[in-house]
């Protein structure tokens, strides 16, 4: 990496994230907060407390991920038979009935992606904290990826929501959302926030 690259941080400049006004960073203590003189937006060289925030959200997501998988996400009442399915049991059900594509979609959207996301964020956080100089470009690419795919985990929640709304046939067939769905939605939302709160510039800070 070329150390001669000019960065805003090096030249003590700040860019407003709202009106994009470039300002000089005042010479004050770290604890003071600084604001854009034009639009009043809060200014920061790096997202404040990015690491601790991201850690907090990641931990919260991991905690919620346990009930999301243990508790049933959907309760199907059909002809008097009540069946509660967790995410895993749903996947297994589809595999057993030979519907591989659906099982694959559910598996990728509901199990693979959230786990991958959490793993990538944890990896990025750790690499930043030890100031790793390992392939910053690839790590940035990983970050862009989790930002992009994060929301697709909501597919499961959308399916449950649609089913609950559509299948209301009284005692013949009835579908209800189970507590697992709430926890799963929490996992997805929190990981999205975690991805946002992570500042990818920290990856490059380690290079300087």
């Amino acid at each position: 990496m070329n150390k001669d690259f000019l960065t805003a941080a090096k030249s003590s400049l700040l860019s407003c994230s709202s009106c994009h006004l470039v300002t000089r960073k005042p010479q004050i203590s770290e604890k003071s907060l600084i604001y854009c003189p034009r639009c009043g937006e809060r200014l920061y060289g790096r997202k404040p407390n990015s690491l601790s925030r991201t850690w907090a959200l990641v931990i919260a997501a991991i905690v919620f991920y346990i009930p999301a998988n243990v508790l049933p996400i959907m309760t199907v009442t059909s002809m008097g038979t009540v069946e509660s399915d967790t995410i895993i049991s749903g996947v297994i059900y589809f595999i057993e009935t030979g519907m591989w594509p659906i099982a694959l979609v559910i598996f990728i959207a509901s199990i693979f992606v959230p786990v991958l996301k959490l793993a990538i964020i944890i990896f990025l956080l750790l690499s930043v904290q030890i100031k790793s100089k390992w392939r910053p470009k690839d790590r940035t690419r990983l970050y862009r990826m989790i930002e992009a795919i994060g929301r697709w985990s909501m597919v499961d929640i959308f399916v449950v929501t649609l089913m609950v709304a559509l299948v209301k046939l009284g005692s013949l067939a009835d579908i209800e959302a189970a507590p697992g769905a709430v926890h799963f939605a929490a996992v997805v939302v929190i990981t999205v926030f975690a991805a946002i709160s992570f500042d990818p510039r920290l990856i490059w800070d380690g290079m300087e």
Partner: peptide, 21 residues
């Protein structure tokens, strides 16, 4: 131009989220 300064809290409220979890 020079940015304005204000003093703020040191504790990040975000830790409430994992606490709630």
């Amino acid at each position: 131009p020079e940015a304005i300064m204000k003093t703020g809290r040191s504790f990040s409220i975000i830790w409430v989220v994992p606490l709630v979890a």
